[in-house]
């Protein structure tokens, strides 16, 4: 499996995803309480791409 990938094209997607992920983690770190245990959200945010952070922002935050 060797897809010829032009990294110049893919890079923006990765950068945006990374910003989303970091924002979610920062928000998680700062918030006092989440829906469900706080540590549970860390793997969700990190390993579920795009939808993990979104899920956290939509239902994880209590003040949302």
């Amino acid at each position: 499996m060797n897809l010829t990938v032009n990294w110049n094209i893919i890079a923006p997607i990765l950068v945006i995803q990374l910003i989303l992920l970091i924002t979610a983690l920062v928000s998680l770190y700062k918030t006092s309480a989440t829906r469900g245990p706080k540590w549970m959200w860390i793997p969700i945010i990190i390993f579920v791409s795009i939808f993990g952070p979104v899920l956290y922002f939509v239902i994880g935050r209590k003040d949302a």
Binding site: I13, I16, L20, T23, A24, V54, F57
Partner: peptide, 12 residues
């Protein structure tokens, strides 16, 4: 954080 994540998701 809506001003960050909503535009980012649309951008993505």
């Amino acid at each position: 954080y809506k001003w960050i994540w909503v535009p980012l998701v649309f951008l993505l």
